[in-house]
């Protein structure tokens, strides 16, 4: 094509705009909210804790009572996340793979913990598992105390975290190729072998993601636990409860230091599980 005379057209730099409108406005609203509501508050929290100095921070965040609270928080959350993952896998599997009357209702009920205020959950759980409660009158004589105990904490944490574990795994089971399973069965694998070698590797990354979400949710939970745990220092006091009680004593420095530890726990755990999940996803391919 030599039909046009060689001209020197202007060079336009930085032309990455698109014809769609609203970049400026949407960027302004988004950054106002993210900076104002997420970045600044968390930065202030961390800076406030940092201003204590290393020794001051340790003195505030590493008291025996705080260490016990971390242990209760971590232990109960891990236990709850594991239970949620296992039960979540079971429920998700049944919802996807079995046809039975009431399947859609069961499916809808799974979301109750997302919609039900955690305070209501805590209140109800504590009344269910006390000696005179619906479940307590059976369980307490057997020596199982579901209220005002560590078991109670785990129970409500399973409640609040269960939907996360189910909803992450469910679509992955849906997308599984049933032909592969049938092929494995034809090749002589037993049902359990098929599940362990063919099905599980495919859904494991999703299970791990569900576990991570459940764990993150459980670590931060406050509303339901405060009702059922009894909040006894060194026994059933979780870190968020300790933060609140320090705050109510106007011990801001101590509350802030514990909050930063809790923040670090949930964020670092999320990172660890993210890495793990990526590795699993790579292996599954």
């Amino acid at each position: 094509m030599k039909s046009t005379p060689p001209s020197s057209p202007p060079i336009r730099r930085g032309r990455t705009r698109t014809v769609l409108p609203g970049f400026g406005l949407s960027a302004a609203i988004t950054s106002l909210m993210i900076v104002g509501l997420v970045i600044i508050p968390l930065a202030v929290l961390i800076l406030r804790a940092a201003s204590l100095g290393p020794a001051g921070f340790l003195a505030a965040a590493w008291t025996p009572r705080a260490r016990a609270a971390y242990a209760v928080s971590l232990g109960a959350s891990l236990a709850a996340a594991i239970i949620s993952s296992l039960l979540g896998l079971l429920v998700a599997w049944v919802l996807v793979r079995l046809e039975f009357p009431g399947r859609r209702i069961l499916d809808a009920l799974v979301d109750v913990p997302l919609a039900l205020p955690t305070a209501v959950a805590g209140l109800v759980y504590s009344t269910l598992y006390v000696e005179k409660g619906w479940l307590g009158q059976v369980l307490v004589p057997m020596g199982i105390r579901g209220a005002y105990s560590r078991l109670g904490i785990v129970l409500v944490l399973v409640f609040v975290s269960l939907p996360f574990a189910i909803r992450v795994v469910q679509p992955v089971i849906e997308s599984l190729d049933k032909d592969t399973e049938e092929a494995a069965r034809l090749l002589g694998a037993s049902k359990s072998q098929t599940f362990l070698r063919v099905v599980l590797p495919g859904i494991l990354p999703a299970v791990v993601t569900g576990f991570a979400l459940a764990l993150a949710r459980a670590l931060g939970e406050y509303g339901s636990v405060v009702f059922i745990s009894g909040n006894m220092p060194f026994k059933t006091e979780i870190a968020p409860v300790l933060i609140v009680s320090r705050l109510e004593e106007f011990a801001y420095a101590e509350a802030t230091a514990i909050a930063v530890v809790l923040l670090g726990m949930s964020l670092s755990m999320l990172i660890v599980v993210n890495v793990l999940q990526q590795r699993l996803a790579r292996n599954a391919q």
């Binding site: 993210i34 968390l42 801001y252």
Partner: peptide
């Protein structure tokens, strides 16, 4: 739109999910 820092921004949207509400409340008090 495509712009630098876009994926970082998307992950920032999720931060409130992994922060304990108590910690968030405390940050606002501070």
């Amino acid at each position: 739109f495509r712009f630098p820092g876009r994926s970082l921004l998307v992950s920032l949207f999720d931060v409130p999910f992994s922060v304990s509400p108590v910690v968030a409340g405390l940050a606002l008090v501070l």
